[in-house]
Amino acid sequence: MDNAYNPREVNLGALYNEKIEPHLVELKGERRKYQQELFRIVLSVIGLVIFILMYSKSGSGLFLVPVIGAIALIIVFGIKASRKMKSYRSAFKEKVVVRIVKTINPDWSYHADGMISESVYRTSDIFRRSFDKYRGDDLVRGTLDKTDFECSELHTQYREVTTDSKGRTRTRWVTIFKGLFFHADFNKEFHGKTYVSPDFAERFLGRIGRKFQKISGPAPLVVLENVEFEKEFVVHATDQIEARYILTPTIMEAMVNIRRKYNCNVHFSFIGSRVYCALSMRKDLFEPKLFGSIVDLHEIENMYHLFRVNEVIIHELNLNTRIWTKD
């Protein structure tokens, strides 16, 4: 791609050595306080179990007194542990995560407990399954050249309740989406809706999958003449002409680059005047560890490249070129 994005060089080693490593002692101290409370909880639970096993058959009413006391102690330790964890997490975000974000762009705003709003998530129409839980954090908001954007972690789930043959109910939480969610101005007011999704059906079912795509999408199927793109994605759109207008060869190539760069399932939608992008990830991305090294250079590099998804998408999709004007 002729206009491929070439980011400015950042010395992540210097970032780690000069701005993050000096704070690791402080972070270890915060984590140690939390670990101590966890240790007290574990000891209390073990003690309670041993006591119940030894004296449960005694028949004495006094048996309940130490049991209630132990349970109260566990609750107290649990509350204290929760507070210590919040303190440790807050310190980690301040000493590590904020510095990574500001290294990419000092003008971006970062909110550790912020997230993409539910209304934006719904407007994207990428995941149409209704959710019962909506959580997120690590909101980054800013502007690159002429393009405004937002990005955060999100985790949406729905509750599934089943009943077995004996009438017993079982509840489980099913993930709809977990990962990074991004949206930005496209500088074009779309009349229809265009969806670009991972091509699971044709990838695993071949020609039969193509037939399934025609009846399973949120809008009519759009077949494009880009072999590499078609291997990775399937397109549905309410307006076929507009979809082809949006998905130029350059943008299709960019989407393939993003999919391969982050090595995860990627969804896009073009609705209103914005582009939405959801990158599915299995684990929490910017959270402190409870054991082992708090953070090392390799983890700093991973966080840096994940936060740079904002730059990558905007530059790969060429959003700053402004080849269109809003109607």
Rank of each mutant, 00 (worst) to 15 (best):
K93F: 14
E118I: 14
Q213F: 07
F233M: 01
K193E: 14
E228V: 06
D138Y: 06
L279M: 15
K166E: 09
T238C: 00
N11A: 04
V312K: 09
Y55P: 01
G61I: 14
E242V: 05
I294V: 14
K261Y: 14
I79K: 07
T147I: 15
D107W: 10
S130D: 13
E316K: 00
K211F: 10
L279V: 10
T250A: 10
E301G: 08
V235I: 11
E153Q: 11
E242M: 02
F268H: 00
K231N: 09
Q157V: 10
L224H: 05
H23C: 12
F149V: 13
R32I: 13
K19Y: 10
K146E: 12
N226W: 02
M115H: 14
F270C: 04
K28H: 13
E230V: 02
L15Q: 09
F268I: 10
V256S: 05
T248P: 01
K289L: 15
E30H: 13
E287S: 11
I50P: 05
F270Y: 02
E242L: 06
F307K: 01
K214P: 01
K133N: 15
K57D: 12
A14I: 15
I300L: 01
K231M: 03
R135V: 12
A112W: 04
N3G: 10
D164G: 08
M115I: 14
W173T: 09
F190P: 07
V45A: 13
S293W: 02
N17F: 11
A91L: 12
I300T: 06
R210W: 01
A91H: 11
T147Q: 06
L319S: 02
S269E: 02
G209H: 03
G179E: 08
L180A: 03
M255E: 08
L43Y: 06
M255N: 07
V295L: 03
F291D: 10
G29L: 14
R89N: 12
T175W: 03
V309H: 07
Y110R: 04
R99F: 07
L73Q: 11
N318S: 08
K261I: 14
H267N: 11
S293Y: 03
R203P: 02
